[in-house]
Write a protein that binds this DNA or RNA. Structure first.
Lengths: 391, 391
DNA sequence: TTGTAAGCGTTATCAC
DNA sequence: GTGATAACGCTTACAA
């Protein structure tokens, strides 16, 4: 390429630039289209490179020049086009969050209002953390068989992606992680290809086992699983069983004890169990609060008193667990913090501060002792319960 | 510009193209970077224009050519770069949803778990409808004083935006709508610059007034507002007052009756009212369920029986309203449908099918009569209540 | 029916 | 400290 060629090209681009400039300016008067850095540059009497520098907080600039540009930006209400930035720089400042639609969580069953509490809270936490760091959060709900499209949407729009538990089969994770920085939320923590953020399921379940056996003296206990393939459910059940065995108690083994994590699922499970055997265990430990509520409802319906006849515990500490009678002994899990932690780690991975596998974190949980386990119920009104339960 | 100039430019660009091609291919072997249309084109032995046509479903193509391209895309696991598409076509296939963070909804007050139920459900509905139509949903949470950044993020990333009630001051809406197709969700419906999607607040409140006065014979009634500036709260209160006046009843007027839409706010309001006057109205109609729950708690705490001494009604039909004792008479509002409708309208506006103001919609609501208004409580167990309340 | 190449609005690499 | 311009990956006239 000769100098002349180069010059020709320059002329050419100058022409298009001019065209572009006047075009934008014209449209501004009209309505929708936005000002570009060309508009800002010409108004400030500088080159687009200078405008770009201001945009990106480049430090070695003459303050007066910067002020000029900033003023022009303000006057034109300039907002940079993120598609262009993304194309040019390769970073889109957008993170993706892939989750399961209700229909996909519990196919065939009617969806309960509370089924997605977990998802909702995580999303909010994630959004807050993302926006605090200048990132936007893109939602990717996965319904029946829409996984591919959703993932593609993530690939084409995001710098990184958070996958909620069970949205993606384990074997696909490495493929995804190869394309995009990936964080797993509440998975089994066994992926070597992506960081996993999860809560401590083990410790509180051991505490609970200890409490039920040592404090209340229960011997026969059942564990109501959520979904048998769910890592959280599995972890909770295993830790609980281990500790009970360790303490010489017994946990009933029966495939009936599975709730789909839902109230109605738990009701159905208890009723199925009653058909086989009218005798109930002394305590039923549930993989989540929704199903604990179902267990309480069903027991009551069939003449059992909770906790006098059967004790019940949950996991999550959703707001209902403080409002139900008897109030629910459960494990508090920091939903929003999960979302925040996932974003935090994901951003670090995107920025190359840490490498994929190294970002895993386990967030602490806390057993909350209320009435349903047999601990004395303070006789207080619902107002008092409610006020005390906050925060 | 002469022909020669044009040719020079062509040569120049060809060079860059070649560079680009090999670059991409190299990286593919490594890991993260994706194939581009150049890679697909060269593998399929066609031009990038042809690849683009396949990508965009252009119909007048030789089927064999299309197959060739499709195969190449599959082989390379090609996913188009949406930044490039957005930059080139001006359409990003991304919609924005702007909502209030909890801290901003109720500053100074601790956040209740259920405060964001409405937001969460709307977001889910919106995401589902968006993804069904090939759009992604970008979240823009607005905390304290972060409105500008959030809006800028919407401007730079989205084709259109949904603004939830009270995220943005009324006067800013025209400015936003001028930049971006805009849909207001649950606003006052008075904006001429943007379509508004809301629920029917008027009809159910009239029905409720009728029911309380004609069926139960209540004469003295209070209305517990949510937030006094909230369009929904205002609309509900006005319709209710009108109908009560029409029927010759009386609605207590006192600024004390305001709950911030929260349970704790309602408790505080009732207690403040009790300090002034121990006599309660015969019925308290609330702007939402959360506050109705607070009213029930507070009344009970101070020795009033609901509904025998005081009847209480809500609005929303959150899941708690079926579980609380007494079960809550309320108005069912289609949360998810709101989100879906907003997206549906927004997409139509983006695609030029309808113009801004013309897209407004009012979704139907339905009064659900339960026990808290004084209607006979069917003596059923919580299981039965729960099962009946579903769907 | 397909190919060529301009253009989208940025960033970033060189020069000066 | 600032300016010129190539490059990012795609869409879309326009040509063939």
């Amino acid at each position: 390429m000769t100098i002349e060629d180069s010059t020709q090209v320059a002329v050419e681009r100058s022409n298009s630039i001019k065209a572009s400039k006047s075009h934008s300016s014209t449209q501004l008067t009209t309505s929708s289209s936005n000002a570009t850095i060309y508009d800002v540059a010409s108004r400030a009497g500088v080159s687009i490179a200078t405008v770009s520098r201001v945009l990106n907080g480049y430090s070695q600039m003459k303050p007066t020049t910067r002020d000029l540009v900033v003023a022009a930006m303000r006057d034109l209400r300039f907002v940079p086009n993120n598609s262009a930035r993304g194309l040019s720089s390769g970073t889109k400042m957008v993170l993706g969050m892939v989750f399961l639609h209700a229909e996909a969580i519990d196919p065939g069953l009617e969806v309960e209002d509370d089924t997605l509490l977990f998802t909702d809270a995580v999303i909010r936490g994630a959004e807050e953390e993302a926006s605090k760091n200048g990132y936007a959060l893109l939602l990717g709900g996965v319904g029946n068989a829409r996984l591919t499209e959703t993932l593609d949407r993530m690939y084409s729009n995001c710098d990184g992606v958070i996958l909620l538990d069970r949205t993606v089969p384990d074997r696909s994770v490495p493929t995804i992680a190869k394309r995009l920085p990936t964080v797993l939320l509440a998975g089994n923590g066994k992926s070597r290809s992506a960081a996993t953020i999860r809560v401590d399921n083990e410790e509180p379940m051991k505490q609970l086992a200890n409490h039920l056996i040592s404090v209340h003296g229960y011997q026969n206990i059942a564990f109501m699983a959520g979904i048998r393939t769910s890592p959280d459910s599995i972890a909770r059940e295993n830790s609980f069983r281990e500790e009970v065995a360790h303490l010489g108690g017994a946990v009933e083994v029966d495939r009936l004890w599975e709730s789909s994590y839902t109230t109605s699922g738990a009701i159905a499970a208890v009723e199925a169990r009653l058909k086989i055997d009218r005798a109930m265990p002394q305590a039923i430990v549930c993989a989540n609060d929704q199903s604990a509520v179902g267990v309480i409802y069903a027991l009551e319906h069939h003449g059992f008193k909770v906790p006098q006849d059967v004790a019940v515990t949950g996991f999550d500490d959703i707001s209902l667990s403080r409002r139900i009678t008897p109030s629910l002994t459960t494990v508090r899990q920091p939903f929003q913090e999960l979302g925040k932690a996932a974003v935090d780690v994901l951003i670090k991975i995107c920025q190359g501060e840490i490498r994929g596998g190294a970002g895993s974190r386990v967030l602490p949980t806390k057993v909350i002792y209320r009435s349903s386990c047999g601990c004395t119920d303070v006789t207080e009104s619902r107002v008092e319960k409610f006020m005390r339960g906050r925060g």
